[in-house]
Nucleic acid binder design. Structure first.
Length: 275
DNA sequence: CTCGCATCCTGTTGGC
DNA sequence: TGCCAACAGGATGCGA
């Protein structure tokens, strides 16, 4: 589910409310992608700090009497976080609870590709290795056409797959990679190394543009995305190609095509997007 | 180093 | 209604 906009919208929806809270209780449900790496009870008494985001990961600092550290959270394909004053009994897909004096933060994740991992800090900790090798944030001023062009050089994979890989730029998943390539007029099958410098500039702008609009729209709710207060996103209303196989391109009316790249669907307009 | 692919898990949808 | 296959917003970890 969640790409950068959904993760960021989620973060913004609970960060202020939980900052400064004290952990009263914590529980785990079924196993997630990785073990927590800590006895869950030992989170009790911890003081929660200000949530931040790196790529599609959330970082929630927790100062415990025993040690400083925090929780690195990932929502995987089907995860979402809810923060509510009233604590309902956990459902079958609720796999992590952090009950605080300000409310309950709960991770719901049916497919369990998500993760909650304790880390002693973002440096020199095994869990923090999850963040090494990540590409630039799309809104980092260093993410520009020159950078993108240089990092795509020498790659034989399709440009769409290079975007999704996350080691060049983070945040664009399947929806926003498709949308950005449409906005930039680039065929997703184009070999990465063959993208010209001017087109790399367009693509960098398109990535930032589509993510900005998605943030403004509160993310994309295809099925079940909600922010931490249950609010759905609406970017799906402005999608140009994603999920629109066979429907007319909004620009030229050519039917949108779906192909498979890297075992994932790519949607594009064969007329508007060129190799 | 880059690549292509299988893999984790559950739910929903559409065809027959 | 039932059954089954295809598909789903991610990303790691493997062998080639």
């Amino acid at each position: 589910m969640p790409e950068l906009p959904e993760v960021e919208v989620t973060r913004r929806s609970f960060a202020d409310a939980i900052a400064g809270a004290t952990v009263l209780h914590a529980r785990l449900g079924k196993p997630l992608r990785w073990p927590l790496g800590l006895a869950v009870e030992s989170l009790v008494g911890g003081r929660v700090g200000s949530a931040s985001r790196r790529g599609k990961y959330l970082w929630l600092p927790v100062s415990r009497p025993a040690a400083e550290g925090g929780l690195l959270l990932h929502l995987g394909m089907s995860g979402s976080l809810a923060f509510a004053a009233q604590a309902a009994a956990p459902g079958a897909h609720d796999h992590f609870d952090l009950l605080t004096d300000r409310g309950l933060l709960r991770l719901t994740d049916p497919r369990r590709f998500g993760a909650v991992v304790w880390s002693q800090g973002l440096d020199a900790d095994p869990a923090a290795k999850l963040l090494t090798g990540l590409g630039l944030e799309p809104f980092d001023p260093r993410f520009d056409g020159a950078y993108l062009h240089q990092r795509l050089a020498g790659r034989r994979v399709a440009v769409k797959l290079a975007l999704l890989a996350g080691d060049i730029v983070v945040g664009a998943g399947n929806i926003y990679a498709c949308e950005a390539l449409f906005l930039a007029g680039i065929d997703p099958r184009l070999p990465a190394a063959r993208l010209s410098r001017p087109r790399a500039e367009k693509l960098a702008q398109a990535v930032r543009g589509v993510l900005t609009r998605a943030l403004d729209a509160g993310g994309t709710t295809l099925r079940d995305f909600r922010d931490a207060h249950g609010v759905a996103g609406s970017f799906q209303m402005q999608a140009q190609v994603y999920g629109r196989e066979g429907q007319p391109c909004r620009v030229c009316a050519t039917p949108v095509r779906r192909i498979v790249q890297g075992q994932r669907s790519s949607f594009f307009c064969p007329t508007c997007q060129k190799r």
